[in-house]
Design a protein around this nucleic acid. Structure first.
Lengths: 224, 224
DNA sequence: CTTTGTTTATACTGCTTGGTAGCAATTATG
DNA sequence: CATAATTGCTACCAAGCAGTATAAACAAAG
């Protein structure tokens, strides 16, 4: 099974002569752009009406193309869903990793993590919401890959909490369990935030930071 | 509007002669039971596969009946969804109100509220999860009624936080906004808890209590 | 201007499924 | 036991939609 997959990849690489590389460069970018546009509109409809209730005809219409156009860039409807869910969790995970790469104390890092991830979640609400709502519509193997990414997210967050626990900055009995509450709080933003609603994105982000800080704060006093 | 509703109720009561009351009593109970059973199985499938992906034929099969049987107890598929969502939020709201009726300080009441609501959410995970996930599949007017119940929940919770703020038990700048984070934390339980998973229901409930207490705790010290 | 390859649309199929009309079975009533 | 009423089922339809076979339009190359 693996051998076959590898050989397909090899074949793909090998039947692209060097002289054609430059020419196909632009073409590839355009293809990528089309795929991204399809994904954007699909995520819009999935977010509003749900995966099952959305027809590919409606997505095509929004793009002023036809259904077979979509099928020439994606294998089927399920692949679209997978890429949307993947985007939703991967964006959050990348934001987390970038935030963790900033030097500082655990408290400082945690603040940056919450701020950046919350911002990313708000900016990419469609993708994150679809990911949270439609996991059951994924193929089992796709669902597993998504869950793995989620698990990585929670694990890295737990490691940060553990670091703060060791330095005495945080009061968390079980970092891995607290991590789930924190990541739940962040996920909740996607399900609840409404652009142009009662509260601005900045207010929500600041609130999230403050809530998380309280959740990990040692009983005695506060840390800046 | 109210007058009309009252009159319909009156009419219903009036065209039931007294002598038939006793006879129809049992019949009504049986009808109610059948409706409840249909709802149970439907919520099971909606929870597992989602609303749109669930066929009424599969629900009927599970109950060892046929589709027209369901249609003689519910107007259509949408009515089933509405009743499930309604159950999900109403159970939580009732739990909240009962908890609030227990005398005590704001801190004591908050603890009871979180404990009871969390328990109810875990016990009725199907209903709550479907409510959280499938709001978009409801008819607009149904969605509005559900949102009203949710709003009542958040408002009552905010009132409790405000009460604690006044007595100095809680440190919450904006009770109505904190209430949303607390109710989000509770909702998150439904989306994340898995029976037979890494953590027991009791652990989750205790964690929820402790998280919420930290979220509202004054900076200075802790309250029992 | 032809030829060859690529991109997109037209037009269709097969299947699923919400919903219903009408019939059968069962139960209650006199 | 006959009659009426209730309850459930068999058999069906119409619509919607994922996915495709095939043709047209377009572009690139010679």
């Amino acid at each position: 099974m693996h051998k076959l997959a590898d050989m397909t990849d090899m074949a793909e690489l090998m039947d692209k002569p060097k002289k054609k590389r430059a020419a196909s460069q632009l073409k590839d970018e355009i293809t990528a752009y089309k795929r991204r546009r399809i994904l954007e509109e699909a995520s819009h409809f999935f977010f509003l009406n749900g995966y099952e209730a959305t027809t590919l005809d409606s997505v095509a219409e929004q793009l002023n193309v036809t259904k077979p156009f979509i099928y020439s860039y994606y294998k089927n409807k399920g692949e679209l869903l997978y890429e949307i869910c993947q985007t939703g969790i991967q964006l959050s995970l990348t934001a987390l990793e970038e935030a963790l790469s900033v030097e500082g104390t655990a408290s400082e890092q945690l603040k940056i993590v919450v701020e950046r991830v919350a911002r990313i979640i708000i900016e990419n609400q469609r993708y994150v919401t679809v990911y949270l709502r439609e996991e059951k519509s994924l193929l089992p193997e796709d669902a597993r890959r998504i869950r793995d990414l989620r698990h990585t997210f929670d694990t890295k967050l737990a490691a940060l909490l553990e670091k703060g626990r060791k330095t005495g900055e945080f009061d968390v009995a079980a970092p891995s369990r607290t991590a789930i509450w924190v990541s739940g709080l962040l996920s909740w933003i996607a399900l609840w935030y409404h652009e142009g609603g009662r509260w601005s994105a900045t207010e929500v982000v600041m609130d999230a930071i403050s809530m998380v800080q309280k959740m990990v704060q040692p009983a005695g006093g506060k840390h800046a």
